[in-house]
């Protein structure tokens, strides 16, 4: 009975508990890190895909200039400058055509250079996680 409370055994028990706690925290830390970075990557993917879709699809679904259903990628329809594009996603995503000096929108934003009336502009897509 005395052995159970001896210093050596107590230290061993304490160290074993500490090891267990450290392992559990390592697991928890890795899991939460992975979870948050995965969510951020999905938001990033939504923005990248949305900008690409709008850049390469005919107006009004996208912003590209088209003639006879042929889309001229990177050449935007004049009407796209003032239009807003609705894209279905489980994240909030907004896409618009902005000038070279326009400020960035909210959330994670990507910009793709394109031409509007021969001038350089950006197709900007911003995605945010819905709360």
């Amino acid at each position: 009975m005395k052995g159970i409370f001896s210093t050596d055994v107590s230290i061993a028990f304490f160290l074993a508990m500490l090891t267990l706690a450290t392992c559990l925290s390592a697991f928890w830390l890795s899991a939460s890190n992975y979870s948050s970075s995965y969510k951020a990557a999905l938001t990033e993917k939504t923005a990248v895909e949305a900008a690409d879709f709008v850049l390469k699809n005919c107006f009004p679904e996208g912003a590209a200039k088209c003639s006879d259903s042929l889309a001229y990628s990177h050449v935007l329809d004049e009407r796209a400058q003032t239009a807003s594009f609705t894209l279905h996603s489980n994240r909030s995503v907004s896409v618009k055509v902005v000038g070279l000096k326009a400020a960035r929108g909210n959330g994670f934003c990507v910009r793709r250079p394109a031409l509007l009336d021969g001038e350089e502009v950006f197709v900007e897509a911003c995605a945010e996680e819905l709360r």
């Binding site: 001896s6 050596d8 230290i11 500490l18 090891t19």
Partner: peptide, 8 residues
């Protein structure tokens, strides 16, 4: 106990 301590 000493061995266990070293292992731990």
């Amino acid at each position: 106990a000493i061995v266990f301590s070293v292992e731990a």
